[in-house]
């Protein structure tokens, strides 16, 4: 008797699963064609590409690590790695922190006009290209004519060479990064905050909890899942420190603090159609990135917030 019911139940279970697999089908097809299939291109990192032979028939690089060596042999390799990691890490921390703070501020604001305006206005810079942002930043921070520096000089100080000094340039990168992205990032946190059960807040207020306690004990834990998920993803991207921004804003005088892996690969790879180098460095970044995601995910397991 028990066996029959068991079988019936498990058959039902299997039948129940089928619609889900149908739902997954289009996505799986998409990933197969446009993501998994092209992965054979990773071979390029190990070959001397000759497109007349095609990727598959191109000769293998000799030695196999030849293109990886191009990067690691560069006298600037260590500097590139440190710059990339440092800049990325600070951007992740600053970015996450500022986006959460903005989302909280907007959420706690009781004036609906102010709320709407801040959201829309903070969202706008995301649409400006870095070329434009450089022009704006220059108008504010240039050594000769920047508004900020004029203020500093009026107060009796010396103008700060933000764009040409290694000790100051990173502040420009961080500042413009936050200005550019905080509104955009905050949207995701806001969506999470909004879905927290309001009854929790009501209960807490009745219990006598003030603003900060409510935020600390309800809001933040409520979006914990989002924070951790986004953090894991950002860590995976840690070797991408923001090529578009840095490429537009940097110059020879700040190379030693701002030259990152991607800008170096761009300059080196563009000369001579060096796809192999781009592929090798890309592979290196992917492996390292995935490794970091894996570790961070395991840590996240402890809080039950793992990605998979």
């Amino acid at each position: 008797m028990v066996n029959k019911t068991d079988k019936k139940l498990s058959l039902q279970k299997v039948r129940a699963h089928i619609p889900y697999y149908f739902m997954l089908l289009p996505g799986i097809l998409y990933f197969m064609v446009y993501k998994f299939y092209p992965m054979y291109g990773a071979m390029i990192a190990f070959k001397d590409l000759n497109m007349l032979d095609g990727i598959l028939k191109s000769p293998w690089a000799d030695p196999w690590y030849k293109h990886f060596a191009t990067f690691f042999k560069s006298p600037y390799c260590v500097e590139l790695l440190t710059n990339t990691l440092e800049i990325s890490l600070v951007k992740i921390v600053l970015g996450t922190f500022s986006a959460i703070v903005l989302a909280l501020l907007v959420n706690e604001c009781r004036n609906s006009w102010l709320k709407k305006v801040v959201q829309t206005v903070s969202f706008m810079p995301y649409f400006l290209s870095w070329v434009v942002i450089y022009g704006i930043a220059f108008a504010f921070f240039s050594e000769g004519s920047g508004i900020v520096n004029k203020l500093i000089e009026m107060l009796g100080g010396e103008a700060i060479p933000f764009f040409t000094s290694n000790s100051h340039f990173r502040y420009v990168l961080y500042g413009t990064h936050v200005w550019h992205g905080v509104g955009y990032s905050a949207v995701v946190y806001l969506a999470s905050i909004v879905s927290i059960d309001t009854e929790l807040y009501e209960a807490a207020t009745v219990d006598g909890a003030g603003r900060f306690r409510r935020i600390w004990h309800i809001t933040l834990p409520g979006i914990r899942s989002t924070i951790i998920t986004l953090f894991i993803i950002n860590i995976g991207n840690i070797l991408n420190a923001g090529f578009d921004q840095i490429f537009v804003m940097y110059n020879e005088q700040v190379y030693s603090s701002a030259d990152i892996i991607d800008t170096w690969v761009y300059r080196t790879g563009l000369v001579g159609m060096n796809y192999e180098l781009g592929s090798a460095v890309g592979l290196f970044k992917s492996v390292l990135g995935f490794f970091l995601v894996y570790i961070t995910n395991r840590l996240a397991r402890k809080w039950g917030e793992q990605l998979w």
């Binding site: 000769g144 004519s145 110059n251």
Partner: peptide, 16 residues
Amino acid sequence: IDKEIMALTSDLYKDK
């Protein structure tokens, strides 16, 4: 000599 030359783009130079 203008100390900012290395940070100038064509547009910023033209403004000056």
